[in-house]
Design a protein around this nucleic acid. Structure first.
Length: 826
DNA sequence: AGCACGCCGACT
DNA sequence: GTCGGCGTGCTC
């Protein structure tokens, strides 16, 4: 008999797959009361594929086109995902042109998604080993040793990719069983604790116990140690709390003696679930604001009463952190939650420890360097309200806030707020603004060098604007000078890549025992190797770029695909030994400095020297302690670092930054150079900045020298308007990739043609070869479209684009083409 | 995205 | 002859 589909509950769930739409599953009768919107469930999707999904809708409409499968499991008895989050996931999916599943998958920490892995085990009744072939036998023999193997493990064992046909045969022969192993990933942290098995009445009894251990001094020592933590008088009240085993046993008390004590019923052990953040200190620090800072904080609060989003432009060294702290405290005290977004690497540093001192346990940190389990605890803490302040990276915008009052986006101009690689390609600042509009929270954007988009909104009264244009205390702005490389070249005063002017300034600084920073936005030793005899250049065979020479490992590295080979000593083409490293990276600068200023202690900070969390802190620590005279580094130096002793910043390659072929490069250059310049001269030290350039008259450099953000903005915004770039338009970048250059180009042309017909030719740029035309063996083309928000129906355009993608890919020739939409590309 | 099914080259 | 390569289509 077929089941009665009336009076049956169904759920539409979000699955972590890049397929649009929700999927309907049937709820087993007994579980109906647990089928809540926002609860996580386990479902089978396809054949034997187990996934964690989130319930988005509960209803009683049986699907007409297919038969719904049953839910396998309901993981929560409450909503792990809030209704606001579900709304936000959908908004992000629509706006950034991806599936809700992709958003959900990114938003949920890995620890909240269960593991599904097909495994095999030996069939308990199998005996006919003689029926098996050699490989099958090998698998079965292994299963005798380890009771279960994953598909991957089998693949490794027999050294083949395709294991499922073999395993199927084994199943047919009743030799093995395939099963899905499901396990929740999140494991609470447990702590072993020890307590006295029974509470002793009165001190005599305890003293008696101590005496009874006279002959076993090691056991007695343990008991005395225990009593030193919980005194005899306190036993009655505090014995039940016990003490952490590791604490009791530190400095090498005897484990075996403790075991004996437990066996004899003196002590017992038990486990207790503890928060991973339990041992955090209570808040101690207080932050005092200068009069000017307090005025600014008050102005921001007033502005936020009027506008949902407020832009705060506070120049470097004006003490933004103190102002944030004051505002955060006010919002928290009103009973709301606060999120402070920071660019990824700024989080590993000083600011967190400063905030921890003020906010203690109520502060949660959400960051890629934290483990899965820690992230789950932050998620749950935010959900149940025990965490009221989160400092995190861009993905923390998707945490389950219940009472969100304020989102601060620090360094809001930072491009790292935009996710690029896997979908969703979202901008955390923009998502924050949307979320705040939805929930009534406020957004505070902070930067010394706001993005043109944000400043434009502020100037047009869409955002509130508060500016703080003087440094904290009596600190002065650094003096910024340009070094004319053309003149120095004429006079032949350049040594290696250093102008005499910069080198002399470094020398003077060294003599005065003051610290210097050299900024160069290119890592490695040299961007390419070149044979002086046959002109060979080392290139990546997967990508259309030269390989960067890294002297540390003596190898050539592709900065696009990571390809890594030993650097040849002889030219691979003509075998001549005359290979020369061309151009300059941070490694070379570091090396050259050791030559030019042998007495200086030089260190380098870039992606290559900061692979581990501690390396980063070690370099900063050594620099702060004055163990380093000159620190060479990439843009990493510009973020959230606060050094007192730096009085000189040298900038290399400024011209390259300004003339990079991208309409945003003037803005980027202005922001980056201004930000690194801000590292010079804090507190009582007047600082100096020297920028090496071949075009000292360049307008961007002039604005930087004069510290003139306003004029930079006014100038740049004119160009943006003239060429229809943001903030006057919205950009969508379309990336078309294929192994065949011709196929990619044709598909791109077809797509561009139909878009032009729909939007008009003026709104479509390309297709053009990408700047790096081949990456990982795929040819890349780009189409850019510019959309005026007032004139174009954005939603309709996006629907059109998604349909066109399907149309293009439906053509036989374009089956293998990849088409990626990057909304609001930066 | 995975995963299964289905159709052609290099091996026994 | 088969094994196994990856093209194509589907997933509630």
């Amino acid at each position: 008999m077929d089941e009665n589909l009336f009076d049956t509950t169904f759920v539409d769930v979000i699955l972590p797959v890049p397929i649009p739409g929700l999927f309907t599953y049937r709820v087993p009768k007994d579980w109906e009361k647990y089928a809540i919107i926002g609860a996580r469930v386990v479902v089978e999707f396809g054949k034997g594929r187990i996934l964690t999904a989130v319930i988005a809708k509960v209803h009683d409409m049986p699907p007409s086109q297919y038969k719904a499968k049953y839910l396998q499991e309901i993981l929560d008895n409450r909503a792990s995902v809030t209704p606001t989050q579900l709304w936000l996931f959908q908004w992000v999916a629509d706006y950034y042109m991806c599936s809700v599943g992709e958003v959900m998958n990114m938003a949920l920490p890995a620890g909240l998604k269960i593991n599904s892995q097909s495994k095999i085990q030996l069939h308990p009744n199998f005996e006919r080993f003689e029926d098996l072939e050699a490989i099958e036998l090998q698998i079965v023999e292994s299963l005798k040793l380890v009771d279960a193997l994953s598909f991957d493990e089998v693949a490794n064992l027999i050294n083949t990719k395709e294991v499922s046909p073999i395993l199927k045969k084994l199943v047919a022969k009743h030799a093995i069983i395939i099963f899905e192993e499901i396990s929740e990933k999140y494991k609470p942290k447990v702590e072993k604790r020890i307590k006295l098995k029974r509470v002793y009445e009165g001190s005599e009894e305890v003293l008696g116990l101590i005496d009874s251990l006279e002959k076993t001094p090691k056991q007695q020592e343990i008991l005395l140690r225990y009593l030193s933590h919980i005194s005899i008088q306190d036993l009655r009240l505090k014995n039940n709390e016990g003490i952490v085993k590791a604490v009791l046993m530190q400095d090498g008390l005897s484990e075996s003696s403790l075991k004996t004590l437990m066996k004899n019923g003196v002590f017992e052990d038990y486990e207790q679930i503890v928060s991973r953040f339990a041992d955090l200190p209570e808040p101690t620090g207080e932050i005092y604001l200068s009069e000017k800072q307090q005025e600014t904080a008050d102005a921001i609060m007033r502005a936020m009463a009027e506008k949902s989003t407020v832009l705060f432009r506070g120049i470097t060294g004006s003490g933004k952190t103190e102002i944030y702290v004051d505002i955060v405290q006010q919002v928290i005290n009103s009973g709301s939650q606060v999120l402070l977004l920071l660019p990824e690497i700024a989080l590993t540093t000083q600011i967190v420890s400063r905030l921890r001192k003020v906010f203690g346990k109520g502060l949660g940190i959400y960051h890629s360097k934290f483990s899965d389990n820690e992230r789950v605890e932050v998620w749950n803490g935010v959900l149940d309200g025990s965490i009221n302040f989160v400092v995190g990276v861009r993905s923390s915008i998707f945490l389950p806030f219940q009472q969100l009052g304020l989102i601060i986006v620090d360094e809001e101009h930072e491009p790292s707020y935009k996710q690029f690689d896997p979908a969703p390609r979202y901008h955390a600042r923009d998502v924050a603004i949307v979320l705040a509009l939805k929930t009534g929270a406020r957004v505070l954007l902070g930067s010394a060098t706001p993005s043109l988009e944000s400043y434009f909104q502020a100037k047009n009264n869409k955002f509130g604007l508060v500016e703080l244009l003087e440094r904290f205390g009596d600190a002065e702005l650094p003096q910024i000078g340009l070094v004319n490389l053309v003149n120095e070249r004429k006079e032949k005063t350049i040594e290696k890549d250093f102008s005499a002017q910069l080198l002399n300034a470094l020398r003077t600084n060294l003599e005065r025992k003051e610290q210097s920073i050299i900024f160069l936005n290119r890592r490695g030793y040299a961007p390419y190797l070149n044979c002086q005899t046959c002109n060979w250049i080392g290139t990546c065979d997967q990508c259309a770029v030269s390989l960067t020479y890294h002297m540390g490992q003596k190898n050539l590295v592709c900065h696009y695909c990571g390809h890594n080979v030993a650097a040849p000593r002889l030219c691979p083409v003509c075998s001549s030994p005359g290979i020369k490293a061309m151009g300059t990276g941070t490694e070379k600068i570091e090396d050259d400095l050791r030559d030019l200023l042998p007495e200086a202690r030089v260190a380098r900070m870039d992606l290559d020297t900061t692979k581990t969390k501690n390396a980063y802190l070690d370099i900063i620590g050594a620099f702060e302690k004055g163990e380093i005279d000159i620190l060479v580094g990439t843009q990493m130096l510009s973020k959230g670092l606060d050094f007192d002793g730096v009085t000189l910043v040298g900038v290399f390659n400024a011209d390259k930054m300004i003339h990079f072929p991208d309409f945003r490069s003037p803005e980027r250059a202005f922001q980056l150079i201004t930000q690194v310049s801000g590292r010079s001269g804090r507190r009582n030290n007047a600082g100096k900045v020297l920028i090496q350039t071949a075009s000292p008259d360049n307008r961007i450099l002039q604005y930087i020298v004069n510290n003139d953000y306003e004029s930079f903005y006014t100038d740049e915004i004119i160009d943006r308007e003239a060429y229809n770039y943001p903030p006057y338009t919205r950009l969508i970048e379309i990336i078309i990739k294929d192994v065949s250059q011709e196929v990619a180009h044709k598909a791109a042309a077809v797509l561009a043609e139909s878009i032009s017909n729909y939007l008009g030719k003026d709104r479509v740029l390309g297709p053009e070869k990408a700047l790096v035309e081949r990456v990982r063996n795929k040819y890349v083309f780009e189409i850019w479209i510019k959309l005026e928000k007032e004139k174009i129906n954005m939603a309709a355009t996006k629907t059109f684009l998604l349909n066109e993608k399907i149309n293009v890919m439906a053509q036989k020739a374009f089956k293998s083409v990849q088409i990626i939409f990057n909304v609001d590309a930066i």
